[in-house]
Amino acid sequence: MSDIKVPTMAEMAAQGQKPDVLFWVGCAGSFDSRAQKVSKAFVKILNALNISFAILGDEEACTGDPARRAGNEFVFQMLAMQNIQTLNGYEVTKIVATCPHCFNVLKNEYPELGGSYEVVHHTQFIKELMDSGQLTMKSGESFKGKRITYHDSCYLGRANNIYEAPRSVLAELDADIVEMQRHKSNGLCCGAGGAQMWKEDEPGNKRINTERTEEAMKTGAEIIAVNCPFCLTMMSDGVKAEEKQDDVMVYDLSELIVQQNQL
């Protein structure tokens, strides 16, 4: 398992090198055990294609998204300015993020604070690799006849109008792709955004992830594909709450590619 190669910017700089792209891992991708698997899956794809990349590692800090959405602009700007100093120090030009919250902040909110980069989400990055012919899907039996439903994260979907790239990546798998009733711009949130991930729900009669998971399971899908580490947690919890964890799997898009290509 540990045969992945993940250089840091510092290591590369020490050797006088600069990668083509910075992989922004984010807090979830770094610390959450389930999201770490997504980081590893994405790295496997990068490694398999010999893509020149690096991470910031210990020099990376949270983008500040949850602080800003909670209303704490001071903490947000502190983190943002530190990150921008680091990124500009390494003269970073292109960033790929596996978390749509990081992606959104890096792409849309850092420029006003002095950090302008080309920022893509990993589903877009994978789509680019497919379009350029670098990444091809092996014909395997992994997903034949299986039903996959795709959950739009709010920060990739409505926040940035990216609906097609992840879907066209999924279309490359030999699977049945089924849409939930609420999808694309009408997609329903998993419940984690806006810093809800770090607080108890306000009083109500249902959890948002339960509402969304029920909708996903109504499609009869065996796999719920997501593009966000927080959706991953929320949907997995939802499936567990319904005691369906043996029948319904929740995977990030990059993990599905790793399975298909047996990386």
């Binding site: 840091t8 891992v25 770094s30 610390f31 770490q36 590893k40 991470i55 949850p66 991930m197």
Partner: peptide, 12 residues
């Protein structure tokens, strides 16, 4: 980091 974790960010 959003969680109080003492691990290195590179541990994974």
């Amino acid at each position: 980091a959003v969680w109080q974790i003492s691990d290195s960010r590179e541990a994974w």
